[in-house]
Amino acid sequence: MEQIDFVTLEEKARPRKRAATPPKVTSASRQRTPRQGAVREGYRRLTADIPADLHKRLKMQALMEDRSVTELIVQAAESFLRNRD
């Protein structure tokens, strides 16, 4: 299939505008504005590969309890470690 270009010859000859350069990020501004997906103070991020069916069950349980999967996992880990002592 052939691609059709709807730009006229005059538009092609016209110089393009450059995108504005983003402001420089300093360490001070980085500390004040947390990044998207940043880990909260006092927390650590954990990544684990789990079976798809277990993930689905966790999501369903979290929805039924109106909680996050993170809350369920933290509660389960605390319970597991408490019972190990």
Rank of each mutant, 00 (worst) to 15 (best):
R35Q: 04
K17S: 11
R35W: 00
Q61V: 13
I50Q: 01
E10Y: 03
A20S: 07
Q36F: 13
R44A: 07
T26P: 01
R32Q: 06
K24G: 15
K12N: 14
A28K: 05
I50K: 00
A19R: 14
E41H: 15
H55S: 10
P22W: 15
P51T: 08
Q61R: 10
K24V: 12
A52T: 06
A48I: 01
P51C: 10
R16V: 07
K24D: 15
L9Q: 14
T47C: 11
G37W: 02
K12F: 06
Q31T: 09
R45K: 08
S29Q: 11
P23F: 02
E10P: 02
R14W: 02
P22Q: 13
V25P: 11
K17D: 13
R45W: 02
I50S: 02
G37L: 11
L9M: 11
T21D: 09
Y43C: 06
E11K: 02
L58H: 00
R32C: 06
R57Q: 05
R45A: 10
K17R: 07
T47F: 07
T33A: 10
A19M: 08
D49R: 15
P23V: 12
Q36S: 14
L46D: 03
Q31H: 13
E11N: 04
V39L: 01
V25R: 06
S29F: 09
R45Y: 01
P22V: 11
P34R: 00
K59S: 11
K12Y: 13
S27E: 13
P22A: 08
A52R: 06
T21R: 12
P34A: 03
L58N: 00
D49A: 14
K24Q: 12
Y43P: 12
R40C: 14
E10A: 06
P22T: 13
T33V: 12
A28S: 01
R57C: 01
L46F: 03
E10R: 05
R32V: 03
Y43E: 10
Q31R: 14
L54Q: 13
K56G: 11
K12Q: 13
L58C: 00
T33R: 10
A52E: 15
P51S: 04
V39T: 08
P15R: 00
A19H: 08
L54E: 12
R57S: 05
Q31Y: 10
D49V: 15
K56Q: 14
A28V: 03
R40L: 08
T26S: 06
K59F: 13
I50R: 03
L46M: 02
P22K: 09
L46W: 00
R40A: 11
G37E: 07
Y43M: 15
R18F: 06
R32P: 00
L9T: 07
A20V: 13
P15N: 04
K59M: 10
A52M: 08
P22M: 14
E41C: 11
Q61S: 07
D49I: 14
R18Q: 15
E11L: 06
L46C: 04
K12M: 15
T26M: 04
K17Y: 07
G42V: 01
G42S: 01
R18C: 06
S27T: 09
R40T: 15
V25N: 04
A13H: 08
L58A: 00
D53E: 09
G37K: 01
R44I: 05
A38K: 10
V25A: 09
L46P: 03
